[in-house]
């Protein structure tokens, strides 16, 4: 185990949406703040207790709340944020489905919700409604009442089933 003192600056490497990033950070700095400082401002902060999931990103293939990790813990990892979902201007089917089904209003929870849906659908491409609801229960939305988000994830599952290799290769 590495021990850092407060004044240490630590050089870390991250691969975010396929781009190599090298930054010097204070050891106490949260991953979410480092990602945001790198310009990935689609990663949002909605709480300080890991309840809301607005900061959800995919780290080495796992859905994580980036406010609950120190950036130094993520050293050497591959990260997918909302900015990496669309490819060459073409929306990912989950993004399309959220638009189609009116799965967002203010949009603040949306990036985290879409990434959580991505991770969830990667593990379950034929989900029941209850599974979807449980799958996103760590992500809070105050606007939509969730019904249209659930509908969006159902529609996204349909789209993804048509070409899972293509749509689930991001992370």
């Amino acid at each position: 185990m590495k021990v850092y003192t407060q004044n240490d600056k630590v050089k870390i490497k991250l691969k975010v949406n396929g781009e190599e990033q090298e930054v010097e950070v204070e050891p106490r700095r949260l991953l979410v703040h480092v990602l945001r400082d790198l310009g990935y401002t689609g990663v949002h902060v909605g709480c300080d207790t890991s309840n809301c999931g607005a900061c959800t990103v995919i780290l080495n293939g796992k859905s994580v709340k980036s406010c609950t990790l120190l950036a130094v813990e993520a050293d050497g990892s591959e990260i997918l944020t909302i900015e990496g979902m669309a490819k060459d201007g073409k929306l990912h089917p989950i993004q399309e489905a959220f638009w189609e089904k009116h799965g967002l209003q203010c949009g603040y929870c949306t990036p985290g919700m879409i990434l959580q849906a991505y991770w969830f659908l990667k593990h379950n491409q034929n989900p029941t409604e209850q599974e979807i609801r449980e799958g996103i229960s760590g992500n809070l939305c105050r606007c939509t009442g969730y019904q249209n988000i659930v509908e969006a994830i159902k529609l996204a599952a349909e789209k993804i089933r048509q070409n899972p290799q293509e749509y689930l290769r991001l992370a």
Binding site: T41, H44, G107, T110
Partner: peptide, 19 residues
């Protein structure tokens, strides 16, 4: 009609205050 507001928001291009 689908929302005109959404494209920015679903691609992480929203500009909330801290952004």
């Amino acid at each position: 009609v689908k929302r005109k507001e959404d494209f920015r928001l679903i691609t992480g291009n929203g500009r909330y205050i801290d952004d």
